[in-house]
Nucleic acid binder design. Structure first.
Lengths: 228, 228
DNA sequence: CTAGACACGTGATCC
DNA sequence: TGGATCACGTGTCTA
């Protein structure tokens, strides 16, 4: 029953080989036999043409159905109706999955940016919202006011950064520094009015200082311009 | 041509009403007429049954095709073959979209956790990876070793937290505190070996202390158990 | 008028 | 056996 598809995956084609004695590229040659079956030559020619056309139409439709079966997993039966039914169910499951994944994306984005949905419902109910809207809103760039990188000996680099403070600056700044895969010995972040003062002690060599400064600057810029 | 679907959306059904004179619930009554067409009663009865069965089969297949057309947007033509083709294209576009969104999700997760893909290609090429794998791996819980919340006057609350330090503890901790929508005056984070010492000055009232301590604890636990 | 699309009835096949 | 499925040829309608 259900192993039928595995045993004979080309069900219709096998039927073709059994029943369809005028398949393949032999249609034109067989038009003569159709003429022999109908002695009056006036009406026989369009009839055979219609037969060929209808044959091609059926073949195209079956090929389309076969292609549809190829892109849909979890095919239960090889029926035409079942294939269409499985395709419908699969599309609907893809719709649900897409909504769920987009909800997850929005949840993650709001966690990264706004942090407004912690005490809301456990599973974010705000489905069916375009993810582009969540991306294009609430980007809070980090404005670098001052950046000093100095070597203080003992394989230790001191980084001083003064920047603007917006809603999520602290988190984004931590992300920037974590993204650089540095060994952070001590971090001190102080917020005064709208300014943010950061002092880092990082394990590093003296010759890495200039590269490190460039790295931090570009990392902050990259983080402020998400390429999505 | 292309407005044909809007003018007559029930193309096949209208065809039914014109051509199919034995539709609806009248199949049984019409079996007599089929018997009249074939005088030999022995073979006529199974033939009429087969006719009815085939009619139902065709109707079911058309209904399925109609339902498929309903779940697929951007239908170009009303042809059977075109409907199946549009469904195939739509499923493949959904596949691509799903891969893209999952890549974005993985990218976001890796940004939040590992921070390994900053200097890679701008558009993450690591498609076709299950998102569940990205979720179930690399969860680094924050282990609370000590948590003190004390009131120091002047509408200022001092929070001291000692916890374990793993790869992404600092970022996650900042996320926790940002999620509470507190007014952070000063933050000091120091990492020594595998321990993380955090000192926060928060703007708050004395009577909010116990609630604040509970809030921080639960927030950390909630962040360590993402409900996805 | 021609070409394309559809439903119909029928015989064959499979389980 | 018989119910379900399929391909086929044909008539009909529309663009």
């Amino acid at each position: 029953m259900e192993n039928f598809a595995e045993i004979n995956p080309n069900y219709w084609e096998s039927i073709h080989q059994i029943q369809d004695y005028s398949w393949g590229g032999l249609e034109e040659t067989f038009s003569g036999s159709y003429d022999s079956s109908s002695p009056d030559g006036t009406q026989s020619v369009p009839t055979s043409k219609n037969i060929v056309s209808e044959r091609n139409r059926r073949k195209k439709l079956n090929d389309r159905l076969f292609a549809l079966r190829a892109v849909v997993p979890n095919i239960t039966k090889m029926n035409k109706a079942s294939i269409i039914k499985d395709a419908i169910d699969y599309i609907q499951s893809l719709h649900d999955q897409e909504s769920t994944i987009q909800a997850e994306l929005i949840e993650l984005q709001s966690q990264k940016l706004g942090f407004k949905s912690l005490d809301s419902s456990p599973m974010g109910k705000s489905k069916k919202k375009r993810v582009d809207e969540a991306f294009e809103s609430k980007v809070q760039p980090i404005e670098i006011l001052e950046l000093n990188v100095s070597y203080v000996g003992e394989k230790t680099v001191l980084v001083g950064l003064k920047c603007s403070k917006r809603k999520d600056t602290i988190v984004r700044l931590c992300e920037v520094f974590e993204s650089l895969n540095l060994i952070i010995l001590t971090a001190n972040i102080s917020a005064v009015s709208e300014r943010l003062f950061t002092t880092l002690f990082i394990q590093g060599e003296e010759e890495e200082m200039d590269a490190l400064k460039m790295k931090i600057e570009t990392a902050i810029k990259v983080f402020d311009n998400p390429q999505i």
